[in-house]
Amino acid sequence: MGKQKILTDWFHRAPDAGGVQRIEAYFSGHGYDLHRHDTYAIGRTLAGVQSFQYRGGWRHSQPGVTMVLHPDEVHDGEAGTEDGFQYRMMYIEPALIQQMLGGQPLPFIKTGLSADPRLLAATQALLRSLDNPLDPLEEQDALFDLAQAMNAVSGVTPHRQRFDYQAAERAREFIHSALDRTLTLDELAAHSGRDRWSLSRDFRLLFGTSPYRYLSMRRLDLVRSLLIQGQSLTNAALIAGFSDQSHMTRQFGKTYGLSPARWLSMHRR
């Protein structure tokens, strides 16, 4: 008897831990519209061909290579063949990478794909089956190894730039304390001790996205958590600091390439 073809799109999300989200998913055809998020997206295709637009060209991921999508880079996703594709991905906050690299420009893999064995080895522990949680110390060691491998494989010699990592980190921490209200760059600058435009430049360099995008993404993180807990779309939007449900829905689609309703319907509890 031949292998039965999977027809239903699905994804499974492991419990969040330590600034890392891990998912496994299958798509039979079209997966995601063009979107971007403010984390690294690092993973591998388990079966099939995973095709996506990235930095002006089409990329085709197959088993054996590592995907490393940089924060805030626009991409989509679809099956490259009629068999669909299955993959595992982890989403890692740039701030976590910064803690391991000590404050320097983020590693950048130009094409979004790498066959370098150092990356394959460094992602092995983190991309094992999502059914069993990692030992906390094992996860921390694996993340450190991954940060070092990314830095080594990036192939980009960082230019010496003057930046204030501590000021940017103070601003980032302040954003987390004010998700439910309006923030201004002047307010962030006052809390960071850095002038607003220097802070804005440093934030992008060190965390891969702008302060506003970072705030929006943390609000969307909260929306997803609330939806899983059973909150309505309207309540989740308001609790997370969005002006209304339609505002949240637009941001959700731009960020994840899926509507909130579709995302929730695909979610495997």
Rank of each mutant, 00 (worst) to 15 (best):
K254N: 12
H70N: 08
E169I: 06
P158D: 02
Q251A: 13
Q4P: 07
A125C: 07
S216M: 14
Y214A: 10
I228E: 12
Q86F: 12
I23G: 10
A95F: 13
D186H: 07
D131K: 12
H60L: 04
P133L: 09
D195Y: 09
F11I: 01
D83T: 08
Y32S: 02
R269Y: 09
G29K: 06
L130W: 11
S216K: 10
D9L: 04
D9E: 05
R13A: 14
R213I: 01
D145F: 13
S61A: 15
Q161M: 15
Q148D: 05
A189R: 03
Q124D: 15
P105Q: 01
L226T: 09
Q245I: 04
I92A: 03
W263L: 01
L258E: 14
L69C: 00
L137R: 15
Y26P: 05
P105V: 02
D72F: 15
T209C: 15
A189N: 12
S192I: 06
G57T: 03
S51I: 12
V68L: 12
N132W: 04
A237F: 08
N235V: 00
L206A: 12
G77L: 09
R204M: 09
S210G: 05
K110S: 09
V156P: 01
A95C: 10
G84F: 14
E82G: 07
G253V: 08
L205Q: 10
H35F: 07
A14P: 08
R128Y: 00
Q86Y: 01
A142K: 06
L69G: 00
Y212I: 13
F174C: 05
F27R: 03
L137M: 08
P117R: 01
I228M: 09
H35W: 14
A115E: 13
D16K: 11
L264C: 11
L264N: 10
L179H: 01
Q245S: 10
G43E: 01
L106D: 05
L264W: 08
S210D: 05
Q86K: 15
R128P: 00
E138G: 03
A237R: 05
L205R: 13
M90P: 11
